[in-house]
Structure formats: structure tokens, C-alpha cells
């Protein structure tokens, strides 16, 4: 018995190290005073960490807002980077409370993966990126081309649909991780790379030495509504995630910003007073306190500010808001009434 079962204590410690709770997610988050949030392994604009482990991006700000609303502190988030294939398993296993990772809402995912999409935080569409020297300027010129894609995403199926509809005979080269698919494209293995168009734009901005060497083709081949995802069977938590996001949108409509949120508490607008918990206690029905929306806005600003900071004019990508404008300004972003 030379090799006695020596590492057993260590093993047990490892297995039991990340205690999370399925079922009553809200109670668990409140008890541990920390939100477990699943994000991407690194996609600038949505969720990416710098070398010091600080996470930034639109998806990241959603998590911070929820942490601020529920726990009271936007920094109380444990970030778990998950790849495309593992993301739903991570949520199901209870490793994360919330998946906020540029994830497309589809019927199959919503109905058969044991989870619920709480809404849309970003409207995107799938596009193609090519090297400029290939002289391809439109997707229909891609006939018989190899296209690099990442496994576990909606892009694989969209690509096949488009290929069949346009009779292009595209050949997908499928990789298990984002990093591997990107690496293969930049090594010149594929004529085109396909993923959500906004991701392509941030990739062009952040991951390419000379952005002028590559071009994003004008065609969008799919609808990609991205949103946060929670486990099925926990209605309270579902409602909280849904309404915190709605509160951020409502704040933009009402003109409440990170900077003026304190001043707005003295506003004459009843809708503002209701949202900020001055006049009414909306938090109660969500099992939160009355300042929940105030804290979320104070932490990350309203939806428009989040957008501008991560993807819009204040970011390196400088994407126009397009479909992600408020409904009142011709876009699709709309929050049901908070009352």
C-alpha cells in the first residue's frame, strides 16, 4: 500500500469547491452575495477580459446590472468563460446563474434545452468576412468556398440554409472553439469566416493586425437576436433578469443616465419616480428592494450608454445603433411598461 489514497482530501476539496444551487437561484445569489455569470471566452464588445482579469462588454454590463440590482454591488460577479458548446451545459449544471454570452434565441434552444431566453439585448445577423486580396465583394461569389465556422452555434445551420438557397455549395470547416476557428481563418485555410456581423466587426477591430486587409461582405444571411439565458423552472429568477434588462431600456426612454440618476430621484415625471422606487415599490413583486433599478442604472448606465460604451461611438468599433435603436427612434429595442 505504498500509494495510499493520498490525494483523496484534495480531491474532495476540488470537487466541492464551487458550491452553487439549482432551483431557487435568487436565494442562492443573495446568500452568497455573488452572481455567477457565464460569458464568452473573449469577444471584444460583448465580453472580453483584459490582462488583469477585468471583464468588459455589453453582455458583461448586463451581468453587472443584475448583480447591482440583486446583491447591491456590480463588482460581486464571478465570471465563468464558457465556449459555445459548453455554455448550455454550464447553465444546466448550475455552475452559472445566468448565461450572458452573445447567444441567439431560437425555438429549439428555448423549447428543448431546458432553459429560457429572457429577452433580446442585441439584434444581430450573420455575415461573412473575407480577405480583401481574394477580391470577393459579395456572398454569391463564394461558390464552392471553404468557410470557417465555430461548432455549437447557430451559424453552422444558417450557413447550410444560405448555401442551399443560393446553390453555393459552401464547404464548412467546423472547429470546436472560437479561438481555433479564428486561427484557421487567419492562417488562410478558409476563403471566408462566418459569424454574427457585429462579432465580425469587433474581430476586425481587435484581432487583426491591418483591418484594411479584410472586408465584411454586405449580406446578412440570418436573424440573430442575442439575449441572456436562465435555467427553466425558476420563474422568479427569470422575471428578475428580464425586468432588470427592461429597466435599463426604460431608463434610456426616460432619459435617466448613470450621471443624472441621483438628480432624477427628484424628477417630476411619475414614470421616473416609479422606476427609481421613489413613488412606488416595483421591486417588491420581483422579491427585490425598491432601489433595484436605481442601483442597476447607477452601476452601468441605461441601455444606450451601455451600447455606446461597448460597441458604439465611445468604443473602438464605433458601430451605428441600427436596429438596436429604441423603438421610438425607429429601432427594435422596446421595454414593456414598468408599472
Amino acid at each position: 500500500m505504498d500509494l495510499r489514497f493520498c490525494l483523496l482530501p484534495a480531491l474532495l476539496a476540488l470537487l466541492l469547491s464551487p458550491p452553487a444551487e439549482a432551483g431557487k437561484t435568487l436565494d442562492a445569489v443573495k446568500a452568497r452575495k455573488e452572481l455567477f455569470c457565464g460569458v464568452s471566452t473573449g469577444l471584444a464588445g460583448f465580453s472580453a477580459s483584459d490582462s488583469r482579469g477585468n471583464w468588459q462588454g455589453l453582455d458583461v454590463d448586463i451581468c453587472k446590472a443584475i448583480a447591482a440590482a440583486v446583491v447591491g454591488d456590480p463588482s460581486r460577479v464571478r465570471w465563468t468563460p464558457v465556449n459555445a458548446q459548453q455554455r448550455f451545459a454550464s447553465l444546466q449544471s448550475g455552475e452559472i446563474d445566468l448565461l450572458s454570452r452573445n447567444t441567439t434565441w431560437t425555438l429549439t434552444r428555448d423549447a428543448s434545452l431546458g432553459l429560457h431566453f429572457t429577452g433580446v439585448v442585441f439584434y444581430d445577423g450573420q455575415g461573412f468576412m473575407v480577405a480583401k486580396k481574394s477580391k470577393i465583394t459579395a456572398a454569391r461569389q463564394l461558390a464552392n468556398a471553404e468557410v470557417c465556422v465555430q461548432s455549437g452555434t447557430t451559424t453552422e445551420k444558417n450557413l447550410s440554409d444560405y448555401s442551399r438557397a443560393q446553390n453555393l455549395k459552401l464547404k464548412p470547416v467546423v472547429f470546436e472553439s472560437f479561438e481555433a476557428s479564428l486561427k484557421a481563418f487567419f492562417s488562410g485555410r478558409c476563403r471566408a469566416y462566418t459569424t454574427d456581423a457585429t462579432s465580425l466587426a469587433t474581430i476586425l477591430q481587435r484581432e487583426v493586425k491591418n483591418p484594411g486587409d479584410y472586408a465584411i461582405l454586405p449580406e446578412l444571411i440570418s436573424k440573430e437576436p442575442l439575449g441572456p439565458v436562465v435555467r427553466r423552472g425558476d420563474d422568479e429568477w427569470f422575471a428578475i433578469v428580464k425586468w432588470v434588462v427592461n429597466a435599463l431600456i426604460e431608463a434610456e426612454e426616460l432619459g435617466i443616465t448613470q450621471a443624472n440618476v441621483d438628480a432624477q430621484k427628484a424628477s417630476g415625471d411619475p414614470a421616473v419616480l416609479r422606476l427609481l422606487g421613489v413613488a412606488e415599490d416595483l421591486g417588491k413583486s420581483l422579491q427585490l428592494d425598491r432601489d433595484w433599478a436605481y442601483r442597476a442604472i447607477k452601476a452601468v448606465g441605461n441601455y444606450g450608454e451601455i451600447y455606446e460604451r461597448n460597441l458604439g461611438s465611445a468604443s473602438p468599433v464605433k458601430l451605428a445603433r441600427g436596429a438596436n435603436r429604441l423603438w421610438s427612434k425607429g429601432g427594435l429595442i422596446y421595454a414593456p411598461p414598468l408599472r
Binding site: A84, Q85, F88, A89, T108, R109, S112, L113, G114, C148, S151, G152, T153, E156, K157, V173, V174, F175, E176, A180, S181, A184
Partner: peptide
Amino acid sequence: AIAVGYPDLVSVANTALNQTGRA
């Protein structure tokens, strides 16, 4: 092969798993 993008049985089954959720 899944790591280098060759569509072998595991790679295709993995794609099927992700599309259908039938783990």
C-alpha cells in the same frame, strides 16, 4: 480530430448534440 476541424464521428455527433440538445 475534433480539435483540428476534421468531421469525424465525434465531431458530427457533437454538432448534432449542439443542434438538438439530445446529449
